[in-house]
Design a protein around this nucleic acid. Sequence first.
DNA 1: GACAGAATACCAACCAGTTGGTATGTTTTG
DNA 2: CAAAACATACCAACTGGTTGGTATTCTGTC
Lengths: 214, 214
Amino acid sequence: MPRNTETKPDARRKLLDSARMKIRKTGFGSMTVDELCKDAGVTKGAFFHHFKSKEEFGVATANNWDELTSGFFKDAPYHTLADPLERFLGYIRFRRELVTGDIYEFTCVVGTMVQEIFETSSDIRDACHESMFNHAELLVDDIEAAMNIYPPNTKIDAHSLALHTQAVFQGAFVLAKSTNNAAKAREIAWEMIDHLERYVLLLFGQTTNDGGKK
Amino acid sequence: MPRNTETKPDARRKLLDSARMKIRKTGFGSMTVDELCKDAGVTKGAFFHHFKSKEEFGVATANNWDELTSGFFKDAPYHTLADPLERFLGYIRFRRELVTGDIYEFTCVVGTMVQEIFETSSDIRDACHESMFNHAELLVDDIEAAMNIYPPNTKIDAHSLALHTQAVFQGAFVLAKSTNNAAKAREIAWEMIDHLERYVLLLFGQTTNDGGKK
DNA sequence: GACAGAATACCAACCAGTTGGTATGTTTTG
DNA sequence: CAAAACATACCAACTGGTTGGTATTCTGTC
């Protein structure tokens, strides 16, 4: 029985892949190692070969999520736009488009995790923090450039605004999870993101002629 | 040994009181019945006398949270303001003031719960949904009245805007939980709420002369 | 043949929920 | 009106299944 000769995805990878779905569905605490291994098609021995504890696996999952999203957004199309405000708006619109499929597919792994482990595991908490805050930080340059071109009436901090985008997404996910079906969940998330877009447009003095936008 | 003749707070009440803190700290799944009972100073037998399962207790906790917050906001001072926009802003500012103390004291029970049980318990999920959405609904009348007095440039839905306030609070709590101390957590939550206030002001055509607001 | 990756078997601690029982309050009835 | 019958609130000990984690062995590759 050849174990894993040409099929690259090894146990570690499979576990991290499955954890992303599992955690968004049940949270970290309620995700058991046994079930995760079953989902990933991997034995428990393999799990504890690669990770010395469930907590360490939590940290690895947060880091993995960070790498995954970082790479994904680095290659996103909105970066090619000439205007920095358009790039910022492009980011928001891009994330709006990512709200598709089932709830556990478009919500956030680290946002879910941090809610329940912030008091019990500082390592996982810090890893989640890094993922969210570093991601927000990627927006700061565009926001600052946009503020130079379209100076807002109010003095606002670019870091704070970048973080606010993350807050709106996270909050939208919480509301989305409270609905009883994916279609309604997406609808709500979209609406919340539309408010965020509108806020940015108003902030930078753009007229919002989106008329009957849903 | 007289059990509970004149000492009013019975086991049921004590359990619900403790659960509010416990759930915000550890989430629902990771909260064990044993530990909850220990915290509440109640035996496990009492728990299962009042609630026939942990899940039913989760529903009761969400309903209890709903009643508690409903009552609390009904008596809040901002309702006496004459202008509906001021009442809406008053709500936001009131909630900003509630962000004090430790993280598990100002974050949201149902927001935490729904993230991890939305797939595993539809009963708890629905109870959380009701708590959040009914709470948002309380803002709709003031928002609609404000829109009549200060018509926004953009056509927006009052229900959607009301929901957006909840999204920002929920998102702020997620970010807050990712920090490593309560002071930083509050700082972030306040910043996010300031953005929300600014959005509302811009939306209703008010100039935001909050200058160097932190 | 050394060594990493993976499988099996196992454990002690822990978990939600159950049991059988006691103390108190309330309702029914002779 | 008092005793019997019932209902409620609670308790401590227990149970069967589950949990994170370990010890050991096996397998393929350099």
